[in-house]
């Protein structure tokens, strides 16, 4: 079974408090299995461990994490959708200027100017380290990377999963590639050793970006905020759905027809 654990982060408030504790809201998809404190920072995700009568695992358990900024672009929209021809347009403009140029010195100047303004020809990039190429607000409007209030529109990013549950071999997290735009092409997932029954802590390291204006320039400084989360691994023994016991029996088909009895 796959557990999905979603972190909603109030990025603006977390930056103001320099603390995640009161600014993170957790939800998951296993409330029916026993997860507690849904919607709070103290949520405990229930992981259903199922074992065969001999103790061997009878089902696999997988955790998935995803972190959203509450004010960030809705995940249903690819963030660069409206600007999908943005870079191509710059490159086309450069090609038109180059076509109209006759002197080699002008070509060099055009290329240098383009490179300074937009980066290397044909490449997608952001002039701002750590920032997405096309920063957009929750309403889909373009936001200048120089705007300090842009901080709230950036999703927090999970950069590490560690702590007791990892050290004790309860969960085995790893960063996997994903075709999803809204996770920047990556997501965290872990398999769970469901023999380690009980309550376990782990720590998510979330990276927020803090904009600071000094003089005319804005600097975006990454900050890593650790955040403790809990899972509870439950245990149940696999039983046969027909017999209620550990072993399969004879299927409860309809009894033999009376006519067949007489014939024999």
């Amino acid at each position: 079974m796959q557990n999905s654990i979603v972190l909603l982060v109030d990025v603006e408030a977390a930056l103001a408090d320099s603390d995640l504790a009161d600014n993170v809201y957790l939800v998951d998809n296993t409330r029916a299995l026993g997860s507690r404190d849904e919607g709070r920072a103290t949520m405990v995700s229930c992981v259903a461990g199922v074992h065969n009568p001999d103790g061997s695992p009878a089902a696999e358990a997988v955790l998935n994490w995803i972190a959203y900024g509450i004010s960030a672009l809705p995940p249903t929209l690819p963030r660069s959708f409206n600007l999908r021809s943005h870079h191509v347009a710059h490159d086309h403009a450069l090609l038109e200027k180059l076509a109209a140029t006759t002197h080699p010195r002008d070509v060099a100047a055009l290329l240098a100017a383009h490179h300074e303004e937009h980066g290397a020809f044909g490449a997608q990039r952001s002039a701002m380290p750590y920032l997405p190429v096309d920063p957009r607000s929750a309403t889909g409007e373009f936001v200048s990377p120089d705007a300090v209030d842009y901080a709230a529109h950036l999703n927090p990013e999970i950069v590490a999963i560690r702590g007791e549950a990892v050290e004790k071999g309860v969960i085995f997290p790893a960063l996997y590639g994903s075709p999803d735009f809204y996770t920047e092409g990556w997501y965290w997932s872990a398999s769970v050793d469901t023999n380690k029954v009980g309550l376990h802590d782990y720590i998510l390291d979330l990276r927020l970006l803090r904009p600071t204006r000094s003089g005319g320039a804005v600097t975006w400084a990454p900050e890593i905020h650790p955040f403790k989360v809990q899972i509870e691994v439950s245990a149940s023994t696999m039983v046969n759905g027909f017999t209620g016991g550990p072993l399969p029996g004879v299927l409860p088909l309809a009894p033999p027809l009376p006519a067949a009895e007489g014939a024999l």
Partner: peptide, 23 residues
Amino acid sequence: PSAADDPPVWSRRFEGYVPADIF
């Protein structure tokens, strides 16, 4: 339903033998 709520639904395995005495 053929089974009660206990054990939980995620720990039920459905398998059984075909009876030998059915026409």
